[in-house]
Amino acid sequence: MLLLCVFFLLGVFGDIRNPITCLKSGAICHPGFCPGRYKHIGVCGVSAIKCCKKP
């Protein structure tokens, strides 16, 4: 249980902050807002480029 808490605090689960993690999750990197039916799930290095995934 303690190990799970440590992983959560370090941001291992559900924390997308770079393009590699974004693309590995099946999403795309897109400048500005996510297009159409895509959902914002993180960022691709900088906050201006969003990681977007279809629901």
Rank of each mutant, 00 (worst) to 15 (best):
C44I: 02
V43Q: 11
L10P: 00
R17N: 14
A48E: 12
F8W: 04
S25C: 01
F33G: 02
G14W: 08
H30R: 13
C34V: 01
S47W: 15
L3R: 08
P35V: 06
Y38D: 13
G14R: 15
G45K: 02
R17A: 05
G26S: 11
S25I: 07
P31T: 08
H30D: 09
K53Y: 06
V46P: 03
F13P: 05
I41L: 03
T21F: 08
G11C: 03
I41Q: 01
H40T: 04
F7C: 13
S47E: 11
T21G: 13
L4C: 11
K54F: 13
A48N: 10
I49D: 07
C5T: 13
G11M: 09
G32H: 10
S25E: 14
T21Y: 00
G14M: 07
Y38W: 02
K39L: 07
Y38V: 08
S47T: 13
G42Q: 02
Y38Q: 14
C44K: 10
L3F: 07
T21Q: 15
V46A: 07
P19A: 09
T21H: 10
M1F: 10
P31H: 09
C5S: 10
C34W: 04
K24A: 13
L23E: 06
V46H: 07
I41D: 01
I28V: 14
G45E: 07
V6M: 10
Y38I: 01
P55S: 15
F33M: 13
F33L: 12
L9N: 05
F7M: 14
A27R: 06
G14T: 12
P19C: 02
H40L: 15
G36L: 14
G45V: 02
L2P: 04
A27Y: 00
F33E: 14
G45D: 07
V43M: 02
G36S: 12
I49A: 03
G26A: 03
G45N: 12
V12A: 12
I28D: 00
G42P: 03
A27T: 02
G11N: 09
H30M: 08
V43I: 14
I49N: 11
C44H: 04
C22Q: 11
C5F: 11
R37N: 14
S47R: 13
C34S: 02
H40C: 06
K54N: 09
G42N: 07
C5D: 04
V6Q: 01
L3M: 08
V43C: 10
G11I: 08
N18R: 05
G11S: 06
H40M: 06
K54A: 08
L10H: 01
F8P: 00
F8K: 11
P19F: 02
F13K: 13
K50N: 15
L3Y: 11
I28A: 03
C52K: 03
P19W: 01
V46G: 01
K50Y: 05
I28H: 01
G14A: 14
A27P: 02
I16A: 03
D15F: 11
I41R: 00
C5G: 13
L23M: 05
M1L: 14
C51E: 04
L4K: 06
